[in-house]
């Protein structure tokens, strides 16, 4: 029993410790972000890596999420004749919750893990030390461009996901379930407000920051060779995913 409590205490302390370290890394990245050189090319490279290469997977998830959302809602709404609300339901769910969250989770799986693996490899092969020895701050050179790219790209991907999700809902609702397209669109436009979309995008900015920061942090502090890189990658995905879901709850309760 004492051992059990000890383990819990130890884990909690270590989690708090890591949150502190991450905050320090974020502050350090923030202060370095405004010191020239700006390394615009590095930022673009990371935007391409995080963004362009995630578009396909985001479109795929968006399409099917929107589709299944329409299908499920249809069976529920039919019981009380509320099928006309289908478009609005899909659009609201996508823009407020599913778009930002699913996009962030997909980007975590694809890019967050890759960031942790890349920085982790650079750490264990002493490439990060080599940067520092050459008088180049590794946080500025490696972490800052990735975080900026995450903040810029994840919202763009979210917009795509929102849009494709609504298209998916439209395909299922109008083409398969034969809902009147005019009503589908009219209800959607009536009920979705600009603030829904913007709050969703604000979330995705936070998630973009979160997943790149955690990926960088886990990679940056990798220890123990190739095995350590594997561990860092897994941890980055798990911690990012949980943080995104918890963060989503917190943001939803604050924003809406």
């Amino acid at each position: 029993m004492r051992r059990f409590l000890f383990t819990i205490g130890h884990k909690t302390l270590s989690a708090i410790n890591q949150m502190g370290d991450m905050t320090i890394m974020l502050i350090s990245a923030f202060s370095w972000a405004f010191i020239p050189p700006m390394r615009i090319r590095n930022i673009f490279k990371q935007m391409e890596f995080i963004g362009v290469k995630s578009i396909f997977i985001v479109i795929l998830t968006g399409l099917f999420t929107g589709g299944v959302l329409a299908l499920q809602s249809y069976y529920a709404f039919r019981k009380f004749g509320g099928e006309s609300l289908l478009g609005a339901t899909v659009a609201l769910s996508m823009t407020r919750e599913l778009g930002p969250v699913l996009t962030a989770l997909m980007v975590t799986g694809r890019a967050g893990s890759a960031i942790a693996a890349e920085l982790g490899t650079m750490r264990v092969t002493e490439q990060i030390d080599a940067l520092a020895v050459m008088a180049i701050n590794p946080v500025k050179y490696l972490v800052v461009p990735r975080i900026i790219a995450g903040i810029l790209v994840v919202p763009i991907l979210t917009v795509i996901d929102d849009f494709v999700g609504i298209v998916g809902g439209y395909i299922v609702g109008v083409w398969l379930l034969k809902i009147n397209p005019g009503i589908f669109m009219a209800k959607m436009i009536e009920m979705v407000e600009l603030s829904d979309i913007f709050n969703g995008l604000f979330k995705s900015v936070c998630f973009g920051l979160l997943l790149t920061l955690i990926g960088c942090y886990k990679g940056y502090h990798t220890r123990g060779g190739a095995e350590g890189v594997g561990r860092a990658t897994t941890e980055a995905v798990v911690v990012s995913s949980v943080s995104i879901l918890v963060g989503d709850y917190i943001l939803t309760s604050l924003l809406f």
Binding site: T121, M122, T125, E126, D129, A130, A132, V133, M134, A135
Partner: peptide, 15 residues
């Protein structure tokens, strides 16, 4: 550090 150079154990070249 500008006055130093360092050769790391596995060279630490940027791959």
């Amino acid at each position: 550090r500008r006055r130093f150079g360092m050769l790391f154990q596995d060279a630490a070249l940027f791959d």
